[in-house]
């Protein structure tokens, strides 16, 4: 629980610092605590995710995955 509260504090301060937006309501503060789980999801991906160093385009990928392109 304390970790969630700490996350809420970190998230709300970050948003205030960068975006100038105050916590609009208690639900927003509660959902800010959910970033702990989201952060953990990303943490499990570390080391598995490879950044594409060559120029990449999602739209080009859509085209390259068409049936006629196989």
């Amino acid at each position: 629980m304390s970790e969630i509260v700490a996350t809420q504090g970190l998230v709300t301060q970050t948003i205030k610092f960068w975006s100038g937006i105050d916590v609009p309501n208690p639900a927003a503060r509660e959902m800010a605590g959910h970033f702990l789980a989201a952060r953990n999801d990303f943490a499990t991906l570390r080391g598995k995710a490879r950044f594409e160093e060559e120029p990449a385009s999602f739209l080009a990928a859509l085209q390259s995955c068409k049936e006629c392109a196989q």
């Binding site: 998230v11 970050t14 948003i15 960068w18 975006s19 937006i21 916590v23 609009p24 309501n25 639900a27 927003a28 509660e30 959902m31 800010a32 959910h34 970033f35």
Partner: peptide, 13 residues
Amino acid sequence: VHLSARLYGGNAI
């Protein structure tokens, strides 16, 4: 309430 909460959090990513 719920939309402002969702939008709000997007600023922290």
